[in-house]
């Protein structure tokens, strides 16, 4: 990475600082697609806690989560040109990569065993708040919790098993002892409802 400021660097730097909101993330990603490492660093700074929060939630294990988070950003860097700002938000794009990567990892058997062990340990040893203290409660997070809270228990359970535990719909059916068709319906209806509650923000 070059430390020498070219004339335009300052100009590029400013809007990102001024508006650290969604739009600037898209700009960062678009610039990163042209090989702008500094823009990518900005993107990282603005998104890493969210990406890491998701990966850690799925994998539980910190060391693995760091590995996967690294993979996520490498992939984002390599694929940045494929990001289409007209089709969605950079944060969402990044989180979708993160989710897919974390789920890939959790489905590899060793990770799954490790995870089960850790969850077992966590469940028995530390009741509720171990994670909570490291988690920064943001407005977005509060909104997500509220939205999940508005779902029926059955819908919420199916969606959480899929999204946060990385189970396939067949595995969810097995876990719940419910017919696959029922699980499909819960995922579909639950997600439709969530979309209604959260709205489409792009």
């Amino acid at each position: 990475m070059t430390a020498i400021a070219e004339p335009r660097a300052a100009a590029r730097w400013r809007p990102a600082i001024l508006g650290r909101v969604e739009t600037s993330l898209e700009q960062c990603l678009v610039r990163a697609a042209d090989g702008d490492e500094r823009a990518f660093a900005e993107l990282y700074d603005a998104t890493a806690a969210r990406v890491f929060g998701l990966v850690l939630r799925i994998l539980v294990d910190r060391a693995q989560s760091e590995e996967v988070a690294q993979e996520v950003y490498l992939e984002a860097w390599r694929q940045a040109k494929r990001f289409d700002p007209s089709r969605g938000a950079a944060m969402s794009w990044l989180l979708q990569i993160a989710h897919a990567r974390a789920v890939d990892r959790v489905r590899s058997s060793q990770s799954q065993r490790d995870r089960d062990e850790r969850i077992g340990v966590r469940d028995t040893a530390v009741p509720v708040d171990e994670v909570a203290e490291q988690v920064e409660i943001s407005l977005d997070a509060a909104r997500a919790r509220r939205a999940l809270g508005e779902l029926s228990d059955a819908h919420r359970e199916a969606i959480e098993l899929a999204y946060f535990e990385g189970l396939t719909q067949s595995e969810i059916a097995e876990r719940l002892g419910a017919p696959l068709g029922t699980v499909k319906t819960r995922l579909r209806d639950g997600m439709e409802r969530l979309r209604g509650i959260l709205g489409v923000t792009t």
Binding site: A49, Q134, E136
Partner: peptide
């Protein structure tokens, strides 16, 4: 996109990750 809105918890990764990512890219 809706599902991604559920991923709202923030957990700061260790600073070493930033260095490692930027070095790798």
């Amino acid at each position: 996109d809706t599902a991604a809105l559920l991923a709202a918890d923030e957990v700061a990764p260790p600073p070493s990750l930033r260095a490692s990512v930027l070095d790798a890219i």
